[in-house]
Design a protein around this nucleic acid. Sequence first.
DNA 1: ATGGCCATCGCGGATGGA
Length: 270
Amino acid sequence: MKLATWNVNSLAVRLPQVLDWLGANPVDLLALQELKLTDDKFPHDALREAGYQCAVFGQKTYNGVALLTRRPIDAVVRNIPGFEDDMARVISATVPTDGDLPALRVVGAYFPNGQAPDSDKFAYKMRWLAALRHWLQAELVAHPNLVLMGDFNITFDDADVWDPVGMAGQIHCTDEERAHLQALIGLGLVDSLRLFNHPPKTYTWWDYREMAFRRNRGLRIDHVLISQPLRLLARACAVDRAPRKNERPSDHAPVVLSLSSATDGAAIAA
DNA sequence: ATGGCCATCGCGGATGGA
């Protein structure tokens, strides 16, 4: 069972790359962010031909999220219940699994950017993060097998930042944002990428300017957080840098989580 | 270098992203 998240920065532009990537990486679920299109423009047909059905929460010009799955999903929820928001940022669903794996509750999210620490957008980001945490606290009781994945727009710490000195206190790196991210960890979620060994300077986003990707001047801001019961089922988590090398790439790379049951794990160990 | 790039809307240049 593989689950992936990818901020595509316009699905209209990136659809061919998404189809190529799914052809090479036939994951069970792909969470997309920054669709930048309305539901009526969503390319259901092309994705269905590729073997995926899609739950979509679109928006014109900005934001927009979707869950693409090989199998039917249930109980789709859009945005954070109880939090008034005119932006399409969150889509959740219950996803069936194979074999011994439990059904998963998957939350795909596009966290607010926040622009600058003294801005109205930052204040909104803080309110949004508080609402997300309070909602997820209850969600985890109802759905112990939960995955929170997407573009968090927050670095965990300086290891996630190519220039921690230059970016100290800047957006994605403030203490306030990181405290909110740690509060999500405090709910019982685990940063699945760091369950596994990765080279230093493993990032998921690189600025389009300054040849930042070629120089690996990036940030790790796209994350896959898993609840405690899933921790023992996690087999791998990795960033796929390949799509960032495409012509006209998204500025983000996909992150892929592999889960398998304990019995599968025993087979792997043996 | 208070920028550089990219996408959107829409047809110039502002806005947002991160």
